[in-house]
Design a protein around this nucleic acid. Structure first.
Length: 295
DNA sequence: TAGACGTGGCG
DNA sequence: TCGCCAAGTCT
């Protein structure tokens, strides 16, 4: 029965949930939103200390909205995808301007905020407000894909079939749905992992269709993410240099790009990286040929 | 919708 | 060692 499945996962979560800082009593909806944005494509272990420092410095949306982008980018440090930091700050500005400094409760309103997509909107409704929402992240997709569909790994793109299947499993009661969302996500993060699933520790082994079929390997090839020698790597090196720069100081173009010249995929790559960072608002050129983080 | 977008740790 | 992968979003 579905009720039995929900209870099994909820009980497992109660016994095994990690003590993540944003799960502690007293965490505000803003704190939950910050944790969700930081956790987009970044391992939770690296997010936890950054989140504590961040919330200590900018405890309310209004605090972050008033911060200088340079400070925000330095505080983001090496969480990766620094555009998220800028979007989070813009999000804080909109919370102040449009929602009286509060985090909205509906998915539609949340989706209208920068840096908030389908997953994050659902997660905030569920984990920050206790509402009923379909949380479908990579963990949930993998767990349901294995248990229900018998697939080793979910397809590259979220399919309509997955959405319908997950929606059928979502408890009707709000409080129960929150426990289900938390539980399935945590199960995917700790037990039903992508590489070496710990099936012997899984509360769902008996009813896992993938496991019962002998845990067959993935069929489709995973899309490999290019990295070495890419523009993305070059952008990361530029940002790393600028983060180290003392406040108010600038770097000349050659001084900034020299470390990238050697080993660049092509001669234009360093300049291309810098230009794209400028276009993204991640760097500024306060005077011709001088560079720094956006004030 | 496929591709761009950081960073580091683990198997 | 090195490819895979991590609570996605945006265009």
């Amino acid at each position: 029965m579905l009720t039995d499945l929900h209870a099994t996962v909820a009980d497992w979560y109660t016994a095994h949930a990690r003590d993540l800082p944003w799960r502690r009593p007293g965490t505000t909806p803003w704190g939950v939103l910050v944790s969700e944005v930081m956790s987009q494509q970044t391992p939770v272990a690296r997010v936890a200390p950054a989140w504590e420092a961040w919330m200590g410095r900018w405890p309310e949306p209004a605090d972050l909205a008033a911060a200088a982008p340079a400070d925000v980018l330095r505080a983001w440090d090496r969480l990766g995808y620094p555009r998220r930091a800028l979007r989070l700050r813009e999000c804080a500005e909109q919370l102040v301007a449009r929602f009286d400094g509060a985090v909205p409760r509906t998915e539609e309103e949340l989706l209208s905020l920068p840096g908030v997509g389908a997953y994050t909107a659902a997660a905030v409704v569920s984990f920050a407000h206790g509402g009923r929402a379909l949380v479908l992240d990579t963990n949930v997709r993998r767990v349901l894909g294995r248990v229900v569909a018998g697939r080793a790994l979910p397809p590259p793109g979220l399919t309509a079939g997955e959405r319908v299947g997950a929606a059928d499993l979502l408890p009707a009661d709000a409080a129960t749905s929150v426990r289900w969302n938390e539980g399935v996500m945590e199960l995917g993060a700790l037990v039903c992992t992508a590489r070496a699933p710990r099936c012997t520790a899984c509360p769902l082994v008996e009813r896992c269709r993938w496991r019962r079929a002998g845990a067959p390997p993935a069929t489709h090839a995973r899309r490999r993410q290019a990295w070495h020698g890419t523009d993305r790597q070059a952008r990361g090196r530029v940002m790393a240099r600028l983060r180290e720069l003392p406040d108010g100081r600038t770097l000349g173009t050659e001084e900034l790009l020299a470390p990238l010249r050697e080993g660049a995929a092509d001669v234009a790559q360093p300049d291309r990286a810098l230009a794209s960072l400028l276009a993204d608002g991640l760097v500024t050129e306060p005077s011709p040929g001088r560079w720094t983080l956006p004030g």
